[in-house]
C-alpha cells in the first residue's frame, strides 16, 4: 500500500468534470484506490464518492493505492491531479 497527499488547485474543487476524469483514470488500474479528505475516505472509482468529499480549491487530499500496480496507479493519479484534471 502506498499513498500521497496533494493539494487541489481546481478553482471549483472536485466537481463533476474533474471527478469524472479522476474516476476514469482510477478505473484503468486493477488495484484498489481510495481518496481521503479529513477522516472521510472514498473509493476513487466512484464519481459520487469523490464528489461527496466536497473537495474545495486549496484542500489537501490523500490518494492511497493497494494491490497490483499500486505504485504506477498512484503516480498516474497524482500526475493527473497536478496537471489540473482537465481544467489547467
Amino acid at each position: 500500500m502506498v499513498e500521497k497527499s496533494i493539494t487541489i488547485q481546481n478553482k471549483s474543487g472536485l466537481h463533476a468534470r474533474p471527478a469524472a476524469l479522476l474516476v476514469q483514470e482510477a478505473g484503468k488500474h486493477p488495484c484498489n484506490i481510495w481518496v481521503r479528505k479529513g477522516d472521510k475516505e472514498v473509493d476513487a472509482k466512484s464519481i459520487l464518492g469523490i464528489m461527496s468529499l466536497a473537495v474545495a480549491c486549496g484542500d489537501t487530499i490523500t490518494v492511497k493505492t493497494d494491490g497490483q500496480g499500486e505504485a504506477e496507479a498512484l503516480a498516474a493519479i497524482v500526475q493527473l491531479i497536478e496537471s489540473g484534471l482537465g481544467e489547467a
Binding site: 466537481h15 466512484s46 464519481i47 459520487l48 464518492g49 464528489m51 461527496s52 466536497a54 474545495a56
Partner: peptide, 23 residues
Amino acid sequence: TNLFPTGHAAGITTDQGMEVLIH
C-alpha cells in the same frame, strides 16, 4: 451520497449500489 455544497448537483446510491447523479 452527495449533495454538492453549492447545491447544483446531487447523487443517490441505490440499495443495489447503482449511482445516479443529477447535475
